[in-house]
């Protein structure tokens, strides 16, 4: 039984609506510390809205989100979270280095510590050669990598990544996942939304979201068994209503 000490994030009765539109309904979820939790679901199911609630940058209409024991949203908690949005929010006219420096300083890093972290994350995402070029010249995959580097720069306790590896080739994807596992081993919790089924398999536990509801939670193996599927993709299609 998971004690409250082991719980990184607790969402209770979450609903979120915009104007008249109900985007999320009645979501209850516990995410453990030091686990990689994946959120899967068709486009428009509400995954992005949900992780924004987890990251504390949006507020639920009803229900509560508690992160590391603190009720969200709370400005001071944001320093402990690393968030990577679905669409890159980078300063196009600046270089990658300047972007990293800005966001790093924003997170309270400075001097040698900042330099060290910058070197680390840059090497991780493989942008060393392109560091001084303006971001406007980057391909989509490169921008994604930079966004990831920025989310990692302050060594957050909770990492929230929205479709992090879209447009990134498999080799880079692999090394990113290796780093994610290392981060988890160091004690951080990682929440990922993804479409890539291979990545779903690498998560410790998965949550399937459809039409704003959480319809299944479990380990990849568990979900496959429950739906009689060989692959996560089949399980997904089952929950998506395509497979009978």
């Amino acid at each position: 039984m998971a004690t409250s000490d082991d719980i990184c994030l607790r969402a209770a009765g979450i609903s979120r609506s915009f104007g008249g539109r109900q985007v999320l309904q009645d979501i209850d979820l516990d995410i453990q510390k030091s686990e990689i939790f994946g959120l899967l679901g068709p486009s428009g199911a509400g995954k992005t809205t949900l992780v924004k609630l987890f990251a504390g940058i949006d507020e639920a209409t009803t229900g509560s989100v508690d992160l590391l024991g603190t009720r969200l949203p709370k400005l001071s908690m944001l320093q402990r979270i690393g968030y990577m949005a679905q669409s890159d929010a980078l300063y196009m006219e600046l270089s990658a280095r300047e972007n990293l420096q800005f966001f790093g300083e924003l997170m309270g890093l400075g001097g040698q510590a900042l330099k060290r972290r910058m070197n680390h994350v840059v090497e991780l995402v493989g942008l060393g050669e392109h560091l001084r070029k303006p971001v406007s010249s980057y391909s989509g995959g490169m921008k994604r990598r930079l966004s990831l580097a920025i989310a990692l720069i302050h060594e957050p306790e909770v990492l929230i990544l929205d479709e992090p590896t879209v447009g990134i080739d498999p080799v880079m994807r692999q090394s990113i996942w290796d780093e994610l596992r290392q981060i988890r081993a160091a004690g951080a919790t990682i929440i990922v939304t993804t479409h890539v089924m291979d990545e779903a398999d690498k998560c410790d536990r998965l949550g399937m979201v459809r039409d704003g509801r959480l319809i299944a939670v479990g380990t990849p193996e568990g979900l496959k068994q429950d739906t009689g599927s060989h692959t996560i993709e089949e399980a997904f299609l089952y929950y998506g209503g395509v497979r009978p």
């Binding site: 068709p42 879209v166 479409h195 299609l237 998506g240 395509v242």
Partner: peptide, 13 residues
Amino acid sequence: DEPTSGLDPLMER
């Protein structure tokens, strides 16, 4: 050219 990178498996199918 990378036609489905933003699509979920249902649409991928």
